[in-house]
Design a protein around this nucleic acid. Structure first.
Lengths: 235, 235
DNA sequence: TGGAAAAAGTGAGTTTTGTCAGTTTTTAAA
DNA sequence: TTTAAAAACTGACAAAACTCACTTTTTCCA
């Protein structure tokens, strides 16, 4: 059974990948005409908050965290982007600097599309325009959800919820039916949940004792999503 | 001295008002052709989260809170929109339900623009398209900031920051040079800061004792913005 | 404009979260 | 395969935030 029947996963996912999949072949070709591919190693940074963009990025394969660092150096993950998603278009469209930084969570293949090609495609393609407006508006809903979660939910509730959401993203790495392994450092999980690493570890131990999940080294295998959904206490 | 030299207020403001101010007269006329105006009393609701949109709204005069209610009925304010701003376009552009609710914070005059007119203007006006893309991308940056603040800052820091931001919105109600009065219930302030009413009251009392602000009944007059900026501890 | 209702403010106790200072386990390079 | 470094985990304590029960002040409308 898919998670969609029991949890509104679409409210936590940007659906950026639909921008390209719905684009007519000729519009897509125009956008991709000068793209350059590159492999990024785990932990490598794609762009830095506060710098000016020179193009957009397309995740051909891999996972990317979008995050902000606060004054005290603490990291907050805003969103985890997956294979097929675009990155970095906010800065270009807002005619401003990057609002966040992006770093790869696992070995990834990422394409770069120059600014001029993106802006040119935007002028030419009615579909690209419409899809960007739709995606950005949907992102608003996702961020509003996240904001409300961080402001109002306990660490335990937030961790349960983020485990549900992040697990969906790791499904892409595993065959259907096979147990999904979440391979994320406790540090990154803490950045995602908005708490200290120690708290993540403590709650994970609780969940493990309750038979909700098991761990294989750092990897997390969720055994009872329904219990996580209950704990997340999300309408 | 304007706040802009000492605090990056643009990172906390949607700038939605620029959508209409930058629109060519003919595009604006097309958009406004069937608009209907209405006065809303304090507390009245404009639209509800989860319902389908039939148009967009324009705040001709007043202030509107955009908020979400969680499972336990607790309110989280996502954003406070001011005179000149548009409301409700996210749902139409995402072809989805409203992601949040909207209610007026003070007596307001609000215009309704039917869905068909908005979508028709979108097809006709290149400028409207571009401005919406720009505004939505900027909103992403604002929400990412807020998200990070809620996840990482203390109640004291959050209240200091929100007082700075909300005070700018109340400037519109007062003559330049006159002391700005923030006229917001402690309940609404708590919804904005993401905490309980009692905590807002306690921190406000502290700020009052430190000479950072004074109160006139429920109204808050900030006397030392620089101290608030220090306390907010925002880079 | 008096008075009832609503909102603001206070205090004490509990719960949650953060911090520090470690030990143990896992990872990955040599 | 060994082993040093990094990451994961644990416990104790401190700080922050929440909740409840209550008093005082303000608002607003009959």
């Amino acid at each position: 059974m898919s998670i969609k029947g029991i949890f509104p996963i679409d409210k936590w996912d940007f659906e950026t990948d639909s921008i390209l999949t719905d684009l007519p072949a000729e519009d897509l070709a125009l956008l991709m005409v000068n793209k350059t591919e590159r492999n990024y190693k785990k932990g490598e940074i794609i762009f830095w908050e506060g710098t000016y963009p020179s193009g957009i990025f397309f995740i051909q394969n891999g996972k990317v965290k979008k995050y902000k660092l606060d004054k005290d150096g603490r990291e907050q993950i805003i969103y985890v982007a997956n294979t097929g998603e675009l990155l970095g278009y906010h800065a270009l469209l807002a005619e401003d600097r990057y609002p966040d930084s992006a770093a790869v969570l696992e070995e990834s293949k990422i394409a770069f599309i120059p600014k001029t090609d993106f802006l040119h495609s935007l002028q030419q393609s009615v579909v690209l325009n419409r899809k960007l407006l739709k995606t950005l508006s949907h992102e608003f809903a996702v961020l509003a959800n996240s904001l409300s979660m961080f402001a109002r939910k306990s660490v335990r509730e937030r961790l349960a919820l983020q485990l549900i959401v992040i697990r969906e993203k790791y499904k892409i790495n595993f065959q259907a039916g096979m147990p999904v392994e979440i391979n994320m450092s406790r540090e990154d999980l803490a950045s995602l949940v908005g708490t200290a690493r120690e708290n993540v570890v403590r709650v994970l131990t609780e969940f493990k004792q309750d038979g909700i999940l098991e761990t294989k080294g750092r990897k997390i295998i969720v055994q009872d999503v329904n219990r996580l959904i209950e704990i997340a206490n999300y309408k």
